[in-house]
Simulated scan of single mutants.
Amino acid sequence: MPHQVAVITGAGAGIGRATARTLARAGCDVALIGRDSDRLEAAAAELAELHVRAMAVTADVADAAALDRAAESIESRLGPITLWVNCAGADVCGQFVTLPPADIRRATEVTYLGTVHGTQAALTRMRRRGCGTIVNLAALSLPLPLRAVESGARAAIRAFTESLRPEILRDGDRIHLALVHLPAINTPRFSWTRNHTGKRLKPTAPVYEPEIAAEAISRAAFGRHRDVRVGLSGLGRRAAGLLVPSLMDRRQSLHAYARQLEKDAAEADAPDNLFAPVTGAYAAHGRFDLDVRKTMPILVTTTIRSVLAGAALAAGLGVLAAAIRRRA
């Protein structure tokens, strides 16, 4: 594999931190972007033990100019950026009608616009060389009540990425855009999401460790897959939602709240990371290690989906041909 310089946003904790370790083990030099300088420096020190160059850059992804300056600084120190992974995100959880507009705006700016700004910073530099890879994160499961803001942002990321692909193709650049569709991941986010529900938050099953997400990101980047989906459960729910949407709405209204909230009340003064980072030695994992799936899920790539769709089509045509022969 040619030498790679990877940039990861949201790299201080959660999926971003796990991805940094995975890419460093693959031999990439890694630039870590985030808001908490102490966590970034701790992550960079971990990567240095893997004998790769690591660089910590403090920046808010909602600030396009700050991300552009970060990208320029990274290229001047580590070299041309070949891989950019947008992992940064922030959320506000609660009944939508009760959410303050400032919280909605900020969560959208970090999750959606942070991905847009990161993609633009990466694309501007990759187009000079006509090659590179950008990986964005979307949600695998159906949108959930109490999570309308993030659900909207992740849907927007998917549409943005799919809209951008034809532009790059028309320009003739060999720049690859990948989408990784993730289920619930055990990260610290459930401890520091701004929470208006009054209850402690929990992920909805199935839950996987952040290293699974990092593996999917690595597979999308180096395998040059258009899409990678972690597991199959979300696909089933999406299909059911398309077939009988009213029943899925009712099911979500009855059961989705309990799946996301613990019985214990949330701490009234619990810190959140919406407008400023939460201090502390957070890393990749959250507090749900006992609840995660222990086996590696199926990573459904675009190629695998095409094969499955082709097999299903062939089987359907076979049944149809047999029926026609019987009638004849």
Rank of each mutant, 00 (worst) to 15 (best):
G89C: 07
M55D: 06
S218C: 08
I217G: 04
A42Q: 09
G34L: 12
H117Y: 13
D291M: 13
R35D: 01
L182N: 06
A240C: 01
I298N: 00
R21Y: 03
I212H: 04
A107R: 12
L142N: 02
R287A: 06
L78K: 08
E49T: 14
R219D: 06
R127N: 12
A153K: 03
N136C: 10
R287W: 01
G280Q: 01
A62E: 08
A66N: 07
R229F: 06
P203A: 02
L146A: 04
G234H: 02
T19R: 03
E75R: 14
T193K: 07
P206C: 00
S246P: 01
A13P: 00
P166G: 08
N136S: 11
V110M: 04
N86T: 02
A328N: 11
A178W: 04
R170S: 10
A312D: 07
A13H: 02
P277E: 06
R293T: 11
R224W: 13
H225G: 02
I324Q: 12
P203C: 12
L232E: 07
G118M: 09
V207T: 05
R327C: 03
L313S: 13
P143K: 13
Q260H: 13
I217Y: 09
G236H: 06
V5N: 05
V7L: 10
I175P: 09
A155I: 10
I168M: 10
A156H: 07
R154S: 03
Q95C: 08
T161I: 12
G132P: 09
A90G: 14
L23P: 04
R170H: 14
F288S: 05
S306P: 00
R17Q: 04
K199Y: 14
P166W: 07
L40F: 12
P143H: 11
D269C: 00
S233M: 04
A266M: 06
A321L: 15
A205Y: 10
A13V: 06
C131D: 00
I134C: 05
C93F: 15
A64N: 06
A88W: 05
H3F: 13
H51Q: 09
K202V: 02
H285R: 15
A156G: 15
K263R: 13
Q4S: 07
L146K: 06
R35C: 08
R174I: 01
